[in-house]
Amino acid sequence: MPWLWAAALLVLGIGLAWALLFSPPDWQQGETVRIMYVHVPMAWLAMGGYAGLAIASVLSLVWRHPLADLAARELSPVGAAITALCLATGSLWGKPMWGTWWVWDARLTSVLVLFFLWLGHAALVRAFEEPERGARAGAILALIGVVNLPIIKFSVDWWNTLHQPASVARLGSPGLHVDMLYPLLTCASGFALLFAALVLARVRSAVMERRIRGLELASARRHEQGRFSEGAITS
């Protein structure tokens, strides 16, 4: 964990300084394009994180792995926060470019659905007194929501939208000049490392909490057994 936190802060610091201070402005968007260095990594992480949630859900449903349940449970709040940042920065970017904070564009609407899926999973896994029931229900919801990922990815190709098409992950050469592409990829790497550090820290805390509860339960059982034995001897 210390190495991961250090790598995340170092790479992210370099990426943000490179993007905000040294990368050139766009010839059309001007300085507004710098929102891209946060917005685009947030969008990638929102989708990639949900794919990770789906994988954890498969591990939970098929192999009943308890660590997969914990990972999914702790992943969803971080994913919801990441998706909220994606929507917020996209809105800030859309106002000067489109003249409005929000449009019911196919890409924007599908990302909003993704945000609600993250929130729904986070609420559902915590809605039951029995953690196993919540984990099963959350896993089913996560797998149903996977259908939204290709809709987000290909919405700009399938429908006529205001959102620009892919500029980096596309066949052929990227649409960004290397002066913008390299700081963007550095920022994305830093945010990805930070995302991983946050999720692993939450999972580690959840594992320790479960261990403590297990020890408390075992101690309470031994105490009850001791009282029962003392009562039987007295009788």
Rank of each mutant, 00 (worst) to 15 (best):
T109A: 12
T109W: 01
S110C: 02
S110G: 05
S110D: 01
S110N: 05
V111W: 00
L112D: 05
V113Q: 00
V113G: 04
V113F: 09
V113I: 14
V113Y: 02
V113L: 02
F115W: 11
F115G: 06
F116Y: 14
F116R: 09
F116W: 15
W118A: 09
W118Q: 10
L119W: 00
G120R: 02
G120P: 00
H121P: 07
H121I: 08
A122S: 15
A122W: 06
A122C: 12
A122H: 11
A123R: 04
A123Q: 08
L124I: 14
L124F: 06
L124G: 08
V125H: 07
R126P: 13
A127P: 12
A127N: 15
F128Q: 14
E129A: 15
E129Q: 13
P131H: 04
P131M: 03
P131T: 06
E132N: 11
R133W: 11
R133N: 13
A135P: 10
A135N: 07
R136E: 11
R136C: 08
G138C: 07
A139F: 02
A139C: 05
A142P: 04
A142N: 01
A142Q: 00
L143N: 00
L143E: 01
L143P: 00
I144L: 15
V146N: 02
V146K: 00
V146H: 03
V146L: 13
V146I: 11
V147F: 07
V147W: 06
N148R: 04
N148I: 00
N148V: 02
L149P: 03
L149C: 03
P150H: 12
F154M: 09
S155D: 13
S155Q: 11
S155E: 12
S155K: 10
V156F: 00
D157M: 04
D157E: 14
W158M: 12
W158T: 11
W159M: 09
W159I: 08
N160L: 13
N160P: 06
L162C: 08
L162V: 11
H163F: 10
Q164F: 10
A166Q: 11
A166W: 12
S167V: 03
S167F: 13
V168E: 03
V168P: 05
V168F: 06
A169K: 14
R170A: 09
L171T: 05
G172Y: 12
G172C: 10
S173V: 15
P174D: 06
P174R: 03
P174S: 06
G175E: 05
G175D: 04
G175T: 00
L176M: 11
H177V: 13
V178E: 15
V178T: 14
D179N: 10
L181G: 03
L184P: 07
G190F: 06
G190E: 07
L193H: 00
L193D: 01
L194R: 02
L194H: 01
A197T: 08
A197V: 05
L198S: 14
L198I: 08
L198D: 11
L198Q: 14
V199M: 10
